[in-house]
Design a protein around this nucleic acid. Structure first.
Lengths: 222, 222
DNA sequence: TTCAATCTTTTTGTATACAAGAGGTTTGAC
DNA sequence: GTCAAACCTCTTGTATACAAAAAGATTGAA
């Protein structure tokens, strides 16, 4: 692994942001954080830039780094794009997925089911992540896979909240199986359509997300 | 405008990369470039990070910044994703585009035609850029618009070469008009399909791009 | 009292100095 | 002659010092 201070600082700050340690619009104090982490400003500023590139921070010239939580509208917009990207992955995967990839996807589905049976939310969450990443890879388009993973990561905190919603885990599970089935019979359109719905925010899921978002927003201002 | 040295350095290096001043895999020497630009290593390293985030450079820990031109496969993959993103923009724009946006798009199309009539390639190119950016905005999804613009920018050097191909300008022009017409009658599917084909690389355009790519590759090793 | 201008303070941006890792080279042993 | 190990050099990573810009406070006048 990398021994760079800047990288580990980046990860720590990212974790803090995602956890909700900072209020929206809050300015991150370079010297204070540097002191807190026991490092100089140099690697810290590097981390800031990296985080800004990921969209977690906004850098204003001569003003500093500011927390930029997406507002609800932007969040919905992001999920909308994610839905389309996942659909594209699914569409392509139905044609390009290899046997070993299908096996791997099958394994994660089994693991998801086991996790649900045991009520192990965290485990389900991890396997869910794996399922999606395998799907991205299976698209056969490595650039697409990278972009999908990037956006997926960016939406992580919000998806997590969303998944906790009532009955969402089982529903999600069913959709995974449907995708798997579509891939098995090389049905591009079905795979795409299922994934689009799987990710898209609509109907009651809209309300679920909104509730989660408010929860997070409340956390923030505390 | 920003008075930050790091930003202007970033732009200059980006320009150099896009122009093809560096060979693929080449390492960018911090001290040499810093000297060349008359700045210290600090803003230069900032620029490196920013460029790495954009995918133009690869940073290897304790090794430095390396030029990372996409290979031909990756290039095709990127255009494939771009096609889908543009299609999504078009699909949504057909429903969300405002009157003033339609007017603006109409203006760029006129300007494109005028440029073709005068054989002014650069002018056509600029108006073509505008057309696409207006389309992104018209999608009504600001996150999507940003992502589309990002990828569009990334593909800039390759698209430019591609456009020079024989008869491509007129063909492109026709497609723009078709998109405009589809938007006018709120035909989401037609707008999406037209744009997908407009951007996608297929048939003879595949060969055009490959030829351009080889040209660029030849430049690089020089 | 209020407004404005200047000065002060605070914070970011840049330069430089220093540390440490990676790669190559030389030297020594077998 | 070949291989390996230590050393040297070159480059990157980090810390600190310095410069400059922005925000805030203070003082003065109207």
């Amino acid at each position: 692994m990398s021994t760079r201070i800047a990288d580990s600082v980046r990860e720590r700050i990212e974790q803090m942001i995602v956890t909700g340690d900072f209020a929206d619009g809050e300015r991150l104090d370079e010297v204070k954080l540097a002191e807190q982490f026991g490092v100089s400003r140099t690697p810290l500023r590097e981390a800031f830039q990296s985080l800004a590139a990921s969209g977690l921070l906004t850098l204003k010239a001569h003003r500093g780094a500011f927390i930029r939580h997406p507002d609800f509208v932007e969040l919905v917009e992001m999920f909308e794009v994610m839905a389309e990207i996942e659909a594209m992955c699914g569409f392509r995967a139905a044609r390009h997925v290899t046997e070993s990839q299908m096996t791997a996807i099958g394994v994660t589905i089994e693991a998801c089911e086991a996790a649900i049976a045991e009520g192990d939310f965290d485990e389900y969450y991890r396997e869910n992540e794996t399922f999606h990443h395998l799907l991205y890879e299976a698209s056969g388009n490595r650039f697409l896979a990278r972009e999908a993973a990037r956006l997926h990561k960016r939406l992580k905190p919000y998806r997590r909240l969303q998944l906790r919603a009532n009955g969402r885990m089982l529903q999600s599970m069913r959709e995974h199986r449907a995708v798997f089935a579509a891939l098995k019979r090389s049905d591009s359109k079905a795979a795409a359509a299922t994934l689009r719905l799987h990710v898209a925010i609509q109907g009651e899921r809209f309300n679920d997300l909104m509730a989660s978002y408010r929860q997070l927003a409340a956390l923030k201002t505390g």
